[in-house]
Design a protein around this nucleic acid. Structure first.
Length: 479
RNA sequence: CGGGGUAUAGCGCAGUUGGUAGCGCGCUGUGUUUGGGACGCAGAGGUCCCCAGUUCGAGUCUGGGUACCCCGACCA
């Protein structure tokens, strides 16, 4: 047994990430470059994300629909910025059924165009608005450099697409969905995020304004974890999405789109993981409690398993996701194995516990003895529920503390460069131009992650240009 | 697309001056173990990336091809 451990984060964060992704049994290598086989344990995390988001979409009046994977190439070309932004990474089908196609079909990189075309048919009147649609789908972007979950040639996501009568309504929708993402991230994934607006350079191809939630990973880099775009009337004009107003005037709609992807799984791994492997937030963990029976002989085994089954039945009855590990390996092996896989709570039951009506709960977020407690078998459901909530709160608190400790108010470019070298977020007054922003990126590798919605107010001096600035931005290296 | 590298068992790798393929992990069976990564014994598992060439003989040498990985530019 020597290959169980992962590369320590401090030694090589990137190698650590890859080790965890494979050893925690989330993915399997794909025969196709840049793609990924998501194994059941990894896919169940996605199912949890999906459930958490879908609930929020439905609660805000959205309905799911499904649009085709293939998009006529000409659609992409109708919005100039959009095609320019995506064309380098498109996969295009030119032959089908053994024949060259009249018009090549693009494998969707995102669906604004094909959905825009459909919306133009569906919407006639102001009475048809707002139109609130979401789609769960796979999309393809032929990226040159890929990493499991964070950037893959094909990935799973949801993309919301809505149409509204006024700019104000579209903006409200855009911000509402940003809030939904932020709430999901914190409430379910225990990831603290900063809500903000993207700079012109970083915004979505074809959008008026792009909003983002940014999270800090364990290596202090930023991960854009969800985006919400106010598309203005750009796509409405490109796809002729018009309605007749109450005043009997033909108007273009205002549209939005917003998405969160399997990248979020990478965010969870890199926000919470440690040198023992994955740490899954309790509300998304496919297995919330793993029960490990401990025994020395056949008699003990029978008695212990009897108790385990009784406790697990109780827990499952309360809706908890519980797994019994009855493999023949040693307890020590199992402890490490499930720590690698990030299960929040381990339930140990041994012969002594059977006799004393006790059990051991060990929490993943607190290593070693400190995280272990003896509990009474009576009222186990409440005790486990409380502990799951405590673990969630602790993980969110830990990640928040880490982010705050590594976010610095920077005043000069020298300080900025030093921080970019060392790692961390720079919170700065900023009044630079697009050109300045590109230069900063070129010189330091750090990009303008967002203008946080939560602004300090007042005015300051831009760290780069030295000119007066009326807003702060966060810069960081990012995934 | 530029620069570098790799290709041998499921995974990670070794393979000497060219002589007919091995190690660790994993896997199967079995016995002893089991409250923090157990061990013994017995097994299974190979198109040495592909094509051509040199040679009595190629995992090893030569030429060509393919795939993948790493570093840059592009990116949810």
């Amino acid at each position: 047994m020597s290959q169980q451990a992962v590369t320590p984060q401090s030694q090589d964060f990137s190698a650590w990430y890859n080790d965890v992704v494979y050893k925690a049994d989330l993915v399997s290598p794909s025969p196709v470059r840049g793609c990924l086989i998501i194994k059941p344990y990894g896919y169940e995390i996605w199912e949890g994300i999906r459930a958490g988001l879908d609930k929020r979409f439905k609660a805000t009046g959205h309905q799911n629909a499904y649009f085709p994977l293939f998009i006529p190439e000409s659609y992409l070309k109708r919005e100039a910025e959009h095609v320019e932004g995506f064309s380098p990474e498109l996969a295009v089908v030119t032959i089908a059924g053994g024949k060259e196609l009249e018009e090549p079909l693009v494998v969707r990189p995102t669906s604004e165009t094909i959905i825009g075309e459909a919306f133009s048919q569906w919407i006639q009147s102001y009475r048809d608005l707002p139109l609130l649609i979401n789609q769960w789908a796979n999309v393809v972007r032929w990226e040159l450099r890929t990493r499991p979950f964070l950037r893959t040639a094909e990935f799973l996501w949801q993309e919301g697409h809505t149409a509204h009568a006024t700019e104000a309504e579209a903006e409200a929708e855009t911000l509402q969905m940003l809030d939904a993402y932020a709430d999901f991230a914190m409430t379910e994934a225990a990831i603290p995020v900063v809500k903000g607006r993207k700079s012109d350079i970083e915004k979505f191809a074809g959008a008026l304004r792009t909003y983002t939630i940014e999270a800090m990973m364990g290596d202090k880099k930023a991960l854009q974890s969800g985006t919400s775009h106010n598309l203005g009337q750009n796509f409405a004009k490109a796809f002729n999405i018009k309605y007749l107003s109450r005043e009997n005037v033909e108007e273009f709609c205002w549209t939005t789109s917003w998405g969160m992807s399997t990248r979020m799984i990478g965010g969870i791994i890199m926000t919470h993981g440690d040198d023992k492997g994955l740490r899954l937030p309790p509300r998304l963990a496919p297995i919330q409690v793993v029960a490990i029976p401990i025994y020395k002989n056949e008699d003990e085994r029978t008695a212990v398993l009897d108790t385990v089954h009784r406790l697990v039945k109780e827990l499952r009855g309360a809706g908890l996701r519980v797994h019994i590990d009855d493999r023949e390996d040693t307890p020590g092996f199992k402890f490490n194995d499930w720590e690698m896989r990030g299960v929040p709570i381990r339930l140990e039951v041994g012969p002594k516990d059977v006799q004393n009506n006790k059990a051991v709960l060990a929490r993943r977020d607190i290593p070693g003895k400190d995280g272990k407690q003896f509990i009474s078998q009576d009222g186990i459901v409440a005790q486990v529920n409380d502990l799951l909530n405590a673990i969630h709160d602790n993980m969110l608190a830990q990640a928040t503390t880490f982010r705050e400790a590594n976010t610095h108010d920077i005043r000069t470019y020298d300080e900025f460069k030093a921080l970019a070298e060392k790692g961390g977020w720079a919170r700065v007054w900023w009044s630079g131009s697009n050109e300045d922003e590109r230069k900063v990126k070129e010189e330091t590798g750090a990009t303008l992650r967002c203008y946080p919605l939560d602004q300090p107010g007042g005015a300051g001096t831009c760290f780069y240009t030295g000119k007066p600035a009326d807003r702060v931005a966060i810069f960081s290296k990012a995934y």
